[in-house]
Write a protein that binds this DNA or RNA. Sequence first.
DNA 1: ACAATGAATTGAAACGTTTCAATGGCAATA
DNA 2: TATTGCCATTGAAACGTTTCAATTCATTGT
Lengths: 324, 324
Amino acid sequence: MVTLKDVAKRAGVSLSTASYSINGSTLITDVTKQKVLAAAKEIGYRPNGLAKNLKEQKTNIIGLFLSGFTGPFFTDMMEGIQDVVIQNGYELMVYASDDKHRLLVERYVDGAIILNYHMKDSFLKSVADEKLPCIVLDRELESTFIKPVLLPNEQGSAMAVNHLLKKGHKRIGYMTGSVESYDGESRLKGFKKEIQKHDIRLSDQDLLRADFTEQSGFAAMRQYIDEHGQDLPSAIVCANDEMAMGAIRAIQGTGLKVPEDIAIIGFDDIYVSQYFNPPLTTIKVPRKEWGKTAAHALFKMMDPDYECDIDESVSVELMSRTSG
Amino acid sequence: MVTLKDVAKRAGVSLSTASYSINGSTLITDVTKQKVLAAAKEIGYRPNGLAKNLKEQKTNIIGLFLSGFTGPFFTDMMEGIQDVVIQNGYELMVYASDDKHRLLVERYVDGAIILNYHMKDSFLKSVADEKLPCIVLDRELESTFIKPVLLPNEQGSAMAVNHLLKKGHKRIGYMTGSVESYDGESRLKGFKKEIQKHDIRLSDQDLLRADFTEQSGFAAMRQYIDEHGQDLPSAIVCANDEMAMGAIRAIQGTGLKVPEDIAIIGFDDIYVSQYFNPPLTTIKVPRKEWGKTAAHALFKMMDPDYECDIDESVSVELMSRTSG
DNA sequence: ACAATGAATTGAAACGTTTCAATGGCAATA
DNA sequence: TATTGCCATTGAAACGTTTCAATTCATTGT
């Protein structure tokens, strides 16, 4: 491996001069600098990031920690984060883990954005510190070195409920996802709150549980219809679009019509939703903006004087299409 | 920052004993080991990955280097790669860059999978070496430390052409993406080859160029129809599904019908395609398997004795739906 | 009782950088 | 000519580990 030492030897200067030259210090004369640069090029020198990081106690990398790459939801958000991170002279590295979270524990990053239900609150608290501030996107945890940037899930659910009430629905069901998901649980909470607010009774029977995938939505709905025959709500709100799509397919499969027999509202407004048949009424989440906001918040933690150009807070919007 | 030194001091042993204990060496007695582990826990010791990596000249990280996170295409592939990488005791880190590619140059990874048209062949050649083998997914470059794992694009295009010929089409157009894309160009090449093989004339006019996004497909098609009025091919093959969907929307927008007036075939079989209206006929790319194959190939380069459990080669399949 | 064996522990070098502090040389000033 | 001050360069320590080689110490065999 070609090291700075080799470059220095070749250029006939000391190690430190070589280092200064490579890093463009003003101390070094141009002629020496050129000599070093030429030598580096000749022997194909590449700086060793690991050594540099060890010395500087800093990687210039921001980590995005996910529980998995699955689902169409995250790419927009990554783009948003990436934009801001690059703009600040850092790199973004995306990482999915369910167990040891090594890259976080072992300080591979200068800051982290967390959207990973596999990480326990206590784990995050033990890991976040001055040199490694964290933004959490999936829990309400807050401390000196941990700040949440959350979606207005409850508000979104309320929008969906009100939309349906306005259309005259009297009995509204809900399909929720896995319990581990913060977004899932807070969407459910918002739904229940708004239902109560309007003095509507919500029987346990009308609360379906699936796991956010389309398949699970399909299966849950199919089973629900099998069990409760003709005694169905006239509308169902789903905790995400994929389950909504699964539910719709299940309903259609039994000969019922959406939205005529059962209206369905989703959440997220993923790309497919507008093309689905029928086009999905849903709560739009501005994923890219969410990512940007998170990244800005992170840089603000890393540098209290940091100036965000645009720090929009995350808001949510009802897309009224055909399905509900 | 709590270091191993602190742990050693606290446990009343030497630095090296502490290190051996943490790493579970059999040399150390259990009682000492426990003492060290307890001390580590008490003061909240976390190993410093950077220091470790520097010493070991190895990160246990595999990098996936993309040009961007955009588009629905990549998540499946990431999953495939992730599975294999984890299974081998490594971590996967995903990274998008268009310029300096720092994480690759500075040896942050032990191996790399490349799908990034921003990286020049010469750059890759200069960067790949014994300690950093590369799998390329987007070019035919091959050397001792670089191996390609490619999609059978030409074969896929041929399938599409033959499918259309069998349906009686005599004049088939093609919508291609940006020139930088290997997949795009080889799909085009396969199309031309198969067309020639059947002695069909392909006028330049019937070759549309867009940039792989749905919008660009829409725009290109719209303009094409505006310009060439009634003189249209009866079928068009598109280099990916997104453009196909854009093209279909443009066609439908002028009152024409798909597939009755113009048949459309896409490429990739992204998730949306089956739900599109009309459901998209397309060439299915097994993205997850592609990822797995690439990862296996990489580990084989990193260790010639590496045994893959399943090393399927990548194949492609025509999904005959409604659009073409 | 003493050397030989072996196990447990430790000292110290190394990984490739950055950067502080020290050095050397040279021109300008006195 | 001797002193000052500046500038370019260099030596050496440090970052937190791992691991080879050396050391200590108890145990065994003779």
